[in-house]
Write a protein that binds this DNA or RNA. Structure first.
Lengths: 116, 116
DNA sequence: TGAATTGATCAAATTATCTTGATATATTAA
DNA sequence: TTAATATATCAAGATAATTTGATCAATTCA
């Protein structure tokens, strides 16, 4: 039974192509952002209602401000949401371009404005 | 600052539509399966090489059998991989239909056989 | 100006996921 | 039939993600 050994010690035949490594890391982070029911609900609301500030989204999500900001940051960091600050308000919205790049047309219908 | 309260106590205006709840849970589980670099690498190898047994995949992934089986099960549970048992071997492969349903055409090129 | 609101962030507690080594069952090969 | 191989699964420990309540800075409103 083989133990894990450093990539450098593995023949080039056997090793996973390291050129894709950064790409996989990128998609890992994006799918991690999508891998949460609450965050999918946030996306769905923004898809239907459009740009929204935290204080309006919080009661719709039935979430405390702190928790909601935590989840919004994860989606924003993954470039799945855009954010626009006006005064003391932060308006978040779906980043349609990113969604289109990631998800199938079918899923776009759930998470992308004016798709279907 | 609003505390979280049970959905039943929230007006229908404010509450998240519960009819989508099961759907979001489903996608959550699928994106969770995708949200791991090692699992994306597994998918990429299967995309390129086609159906493969655990004992052939293990050295390519530079992973112990136990760990690899753990990750394969997660992908299989999410219906992202198919599994065919022949004797004592288990052959895993990409479930192209599911991948197409989830991911954009661009991503299919990375994770879907003969796409681009 | 002073009080209230908005939203980001922090630390601690909780919960979920991943890794590891061991074991068990089934099958194949000698 | 015995030994070796293939794979799944388990329990324990290690890591990572989430929740909670508090605090802070920057507005906005009265």
């Amino acid at each position: 039974m083989q133990k894990e050994i450093p990539l450098t010690a593995v023949s080039s035949e056997k090793a996973v192509d390291p050129s894709n490594d950064k790409e996989f890391e990128l998609y890992e982070s994006k799918f991690k952002a999508l891998a949460d029911k609450k965050r999918l609900q946030i996306m769905n609301i923004l898809t239907q209602k459009g740009s929204m500030c935290v204080c309006d989204l919080a009661p719709m999500m039935n979430m405390t401000q702190s928790k909601l900001s935590y989840h919004l940051k994860i989606l924003w960091d993954a470039n799945i949401l855009t954010k626009e600050t006006r005064g003391t308000w932060s308006y978040y919205d779906i980043n349609t371009e990113e969604i289109n790049h990631l998800l199938s047309h079918e899923l776009c219908c759930i998470f992308k404005p004016s798709c279907c």
